[in-house]
């Protein structure tokens, strides 16, 4: 079974594929140049307490995404 969740809702340590990014043009562009785009496989590494950023691993790089934007990135979670 597959389910779609935002990066914030997704469990730390789980993996999935980005399916949708619901952000403004500027935001999508910034994520785009880093390779954070629909179709990419990611792993959620951490979610910092105190409404801090979500950290994901994408290929060989770790990327921190502020809470606001992490909520708008939807991931198809692998089971």
């Amino acid at each position: 079974m597959e389910e779609v969740r935002s990066l914030v809702e997704m469990e730390t340590g789980s993996k999935g594929e980005i399916v949708h990014i619901d952000g403004g043009e500027g935001m999508v562009r910034r994520l785009w140049v880093l390779g954070v785009i629909p179709g990419k496989k990611i792993e959620k590494v951490s979610s910092i307490i105190g409404r801090g950023p979500v950290v994901i691993r994408l290929g060989q790089q770790e990327i921190a995404l502020g809470r606001g934007i992490a909520q708008r990135i939807l991931v198809k979670v692998e089971r």
């Binding site: 500027g26 935001m27 910034r30 994520l31 880093l34 954070v36 950023p53 950290v55 790089q61 770790e62 990327i63 921190a64 995404l65 502020g66 809470r67 606001g68 934007i69």
Partner: peptide, 10 residues
């Protein structure tokens, strides 16, 4: 305010 997007180096 633009949210944080940053690469974390090893």
């Amino acid at each position: 305010r633009s949210p944080l997007v940053c690469e974390i180096p090893p």
